[in-house]
Nucleic acid binder design. Sequence first.
DNA 1: CGGCACCGTTCCGCGATGTGGAACAGGTGA
DNA 2: TCACCTGTTCCACATCGCGGAACGGTGCCG
Lengths: 248, 248
Amino acid sequence: MSRVQSIERAFAVLTTLADGPLGVTDVAERARLPKSTAARLLASLAREGAVEQADGRSEYRLGRRLLTLSSGIGASRSLVAIAHPFLVELAEQTGEAAGLSVLDGRTVHYIDQVDSPNPVQVRDWTGTRISMHAVSSGLVVLASLKPAALEAYLAGPLERFTEHTVVIPSQIRDRLWNVRRDGYAWVREEFALGISSVAAPIADASGEVVGAVHVHGPSYRFPAAGQADTLGEAVEAAAGRIGSRLRS
Amino acid sequence: MSRVQSIERAFAVLTTLADGPLGVTDVAERARLPKSTAARLLASLAREGAVEQADGRSEYRLGRRLLTLSSGIGASRSLVAIAHPFLVELAEQTGEAAGLSVLDGRTVHYIDQVDSPNPVQVRDWTGTRISMHAVSSGLVVLASLKPAALEAYLAGPLERFTEHTVVIPSQIRDRLWNVRRDGYAWVREEFALGISSVAAPIADASGEVVGAVHVHGPSYRFPAAGQADTLGEAVEAAAGRIGSRLRS
DNA sequence: CGGCACCGTTCCGCGATGTGGAACAGGTGA
DNA sequence: TCACCTGTTCCACATCGCGGAACGGTGCCG
């Protein structure tokens, strides 16, 4: 496997600081590097925010950049860790893939998915960002927005992904009224042909919606006839359990 | 300020992955690097554990090494963030420096300190590790250990820092009995001449001691005559408030 | 007060390292 | 089957990182 010496050395330097702040000479000794090399690596890492100089100019310590970089994976992974068992239950209960997403700008960002046991299923959207108005997870987030934030969203571009995508603001507002009433949202073939999904919002301790749970499947079998409400309530219940866990 | 191009590029690559997994070609485009350069940087970062390849060999995502490196600062900093306001109150209330430490092997590791308003004060021990038997924070941690763990500690080397340091195991055991009874521990000039300190344990939700709060000061004025118990109880109360916050 | 030790920082000649274009193998979809 | 795109690897080359030496600053000690 390829290697870049400077990256290896940079991590050796970072590792020496994992136990607490050190001066240049100490870092050099522990990383087995010449002092000028250690100084140069520390200066470069400091430019990136990966280390910072404590109390003036004497000692270096790990900087916030590492936390910032990993906080995305940390925070999402902790929501993922809490939610995942519930997604597993939901996938088993519904026979379709269950997923998790969080708000990110004008989109929802898919951060986890449990696949359906059915070999015919919708692909994994994890990592993808999709405009809120076109997916069920997005609609439940939109339904939770304060009026000003919702109007700001509706004033922006509303992309039509398929012939079924609802892009007229007044129709979206009406729809969100129903979403608030029902506690879940259905979308059929609006983001992509052949896919239907139902989502419910996850609220944190302050009642603020931090994400959504959804189940999606191929439209030819999902939802089964007469099952839309039952499925919606199952997703709503799973979202409620995840929210409770967040609050405990 | 000095710079190392490879480190800058490595962070550019890591930054592209902060939003989610990407393939080599995507990373190269977002980091504005040639594909072979991006591939080599990714391979080297993978060797360090800073990135890992998701699902086989297709996409890269941020690896656990960043979290592991920063978890020391993250976990301690979150305890520090919770505890700090209470240390400020305690320092004001007692007129002496208040500090925070966590267990680390045979030592306590000092991770925060609020200085005394008095210009004459004990230096900041933050970052230092000191053997438990020689400091008040260590004694409260020792008092919380299960018998086997305590005996294992007492079977190890017990350094005598000053003529006052208690190093005879039976005398330490008796002392710990008193610490458990009182809920706090006093140490006078056992780690360093001229310094006295009082500490109380911080317990988490399961009752396990995760750290200690202490106040220390120059022995000539601390504790003031007849104030030892009052000071001990104040520190114990602050530790209790921190523990409650950890549990909420 | 002066000498000494040690620190962090900076410089610069040098050659080792990283660069990046090109080529390759494999996978995918029309 | 073919076109396209991916990730991977190679290698000539020159840029970059190296590291020894020197410097200025600070603190300690006699």
